[in-house]
């Protein structure tokens, strides 16, 4: 990871991005906003799976909110890659690696949730237990990835 961050650090595009002072905070803002939509839209689906909210079936909620969730995830990924170029020092941080693993696991759980909801096909409550469990796991993993995304390992903390 150290070699990778040094290599990215030397890329012309990275140098350009770091020269433009407002670029990193701008990307960070877009990143935070898209992560917000990812977490919120997933929670809207999951609230229905748990029967906490709304008359709509979890499958209907999935059809409505999951496309927003994936679109927001695409924006978060693009802005995240931009941030890796703009602030490559973060690679050296253990929290960054933890975030990547958590994201991978969360994306798999979310895909599984989408599949379970589609198999359900609108049959009310048919697969709700599976949707409840997988969705809850997905939310916990995404929240973990969000926290790790901003978290700093001790070495990183000292290095700013």
């Amino acid at each position: 990871m150290l070699e990778l961050s040094q290599w990215v650090n030397g890329l012309p595009i990275s140098l350009v991005l770091r020269r433009i002072g407002w670029f990193v905070p701008l990307l960070q803002s877009l990143h935070i906003l898209s992560v917000g939509i990812v977490l919120s839209s997933l929670m809207m689906v999951e609230l229905r799976a748990w029967g906490v909210a709304g008359a709509a079936t979890p499958a209907a909620a999935g059809r409505r909110f999951l496309p927003w969730m994936w679109a927001a995830l695409a924006v978060a990924t693009v802005t995240g890659i931009g941030l890796m170029l703009g602030a490559p020092r973060s690679f050296r941080d253990g929290a960054f690696l933890a975030k990547l693993y958590l994201m991978g696991a969360a994306a798999i759980a979310t895909l599984a949730l989408g599949v379970v909801l589609r198999v359900d096909g609108g049959l009310k409550d048919a697969r709700v237990p599976a949707a409840r469990l997988i969705g809850a796991v997905a939310i916990v993993l995404w929240l973990g990835a969000t926290l790790a995304g901003r978290g700093r390992w001790i070495a990183g903390m000292l290095g700013g």
């Binding site: 935070i32 906003l33 992560v35 917000g36 939509i37 977490l39 919120s40 839209s41 978290g151 903390m157």
Partner: peptide, 21 residues
Amino acid sequence: FAALDMIHIAAISIVVGMIAL
């Protein structure tokens, strides 16, 4: 500060995401 900052940003993203919906 690192812990507060981490929790603050995660919480803000949920606030704004929910309000945006």
